[in-house]
Amino acid sequence: MLAEFVGTGMLVTVVVGSGIAAQRLSPNDVGLQLLENSLATALGLAVLILMLGPVSGAHLNPAVSLADWVLGRRRAGGLPTTDLGGYLAAQLSGGVAGTLLAGVMFDVAPAFSTHQRATPGQLIGEVVATAGLVLLIFTLARTSTPSVTAAAVGAYIGAAYWFTSSTSFANPAVTVARIFTDTFAGIAPASAVPFILAQLVGATVGLGLLLVLQPTATRAAGRAVIPTEPETTPQEHS
């Protein structure tokens, strides 16, 4: 739970903090601001996955945890029901803490965002972004090493900043957290609920595609985003 709290918090700190820095460094160029924000997010996410994956799997995203839980219901494995609530609570509270930390570092007071985003096109963008993310993660969970997965997930999110109209939140915890900053990365509370619903639809679409394209995909349950390292006893070390 601590790994999910810290990881989601640091992910949001990267997103919000780099957004504030981009606004200050490139005040007259929105395109450059988005480039700076997307690069920082892609790199930061990859590092967090490598650092925290062995502890919790580095879900850092309620959509991923829910997808892992659903896959586990089809086959023994996946995130246990007893852990699901804890993961979601850690991710949501960690994300809000990350927004507050970014504000403290940049001397920006917390405030509800006024950035309205929930147009039909942007909601479709969130469906696409989240579906692609879920499909990618659970495909790589069966076929790739942790380092490849971390790089690929970071690269996908970095690219999705640009090819989706929503700039690819693709994460309910990050969406909730970004309500509390009226800066470049913010999202108005009225837009957050439609975004989260679109993300859940996208996660469902991604899982459906996964089960069609990878008929044995349930074997990936419990290995997302990367497998956790089992605890060992002194006898196992000897």
Rank of each mutant, 00 (worst) to 15 (best):
M1Q: 08
L2A: 15
A3H: 14
E4I: 04
F5V: 06
V6P: 10
V6S: 07
V14H: 11
V15E: 00
S18H: 05
G19L: 08
I20M: 09
I20S: 06
A21F: 13
A21E: 14
L25R: 00
P27D: 09
P27R: 01
L32F: 11
L34T: 03
E36G: 12
N37I: 01
N37V: 00
S38R: 00
L39V: 15
L39M: 13
T41K: 12
T41I: 01
L52A: 07
L52R: 09
L52I: 00
P54L: 09
L60G: 07
S65K: 13
S65D: 02
L66E: 06
A67R: 02
L71V: 06
R73W: 08
R74Y: 14
R75G: 11
A76D: 08
L79M: 09
T81M: 05
T82Q: 04
G86C: 11
L88I: 15
A89R: 07
A90L: 05
S93H: 03
V96E: 08
A97D: 02
G98E: 00
G103Q: 02
V104M: 11
V104D: 04
V108P: 04
A109T: 15
P110F: 05
P110M: 09
A111M: 07
F112I: 01
H115D: 04
Q116T: 11
A118Q: 04
A118S: 14
T119W: 06
P120G: 10
G121C: 04
Q122S: 14
L123Q: 09
L123V: 02
G125V: 09
G125E: 14
G125F: 05
E126A: 12
V128K: 05
V128R: 04
A129G: 14
A129M: 08
T130D: 03
A131T: 01
V134D: 13
L140C: 10
L140N: 10
R142C: 01
T143I: 00
S144T: 03
T145N: 07
T145S: 15
S147G: 09
S147Q: 13
G154L: 05
G154F: 05
I157T: 11
F163K: 00
F163H: 01
S165A: 14
S166P: 08
P172A: 08
P172Y: 07
T175F: 10
T183F: 01
I187C: 02
I187P: 02
S191D: 10
V193Y: 01
V193D: 03
I196F: 10
A198D: 00
V201P: 12
A203M: 13
A203C: 08
T204Q: 03
T204G: 13
L207Q: 06
L207S: 05
G208M: 05
L210M: 06
P215C: 09
A217L: 10
A220D: 14
A221V: 04
G222Q: 04
A224V: 04
A224K: 15
T228R: 15
E229F: 04
S238M: 07
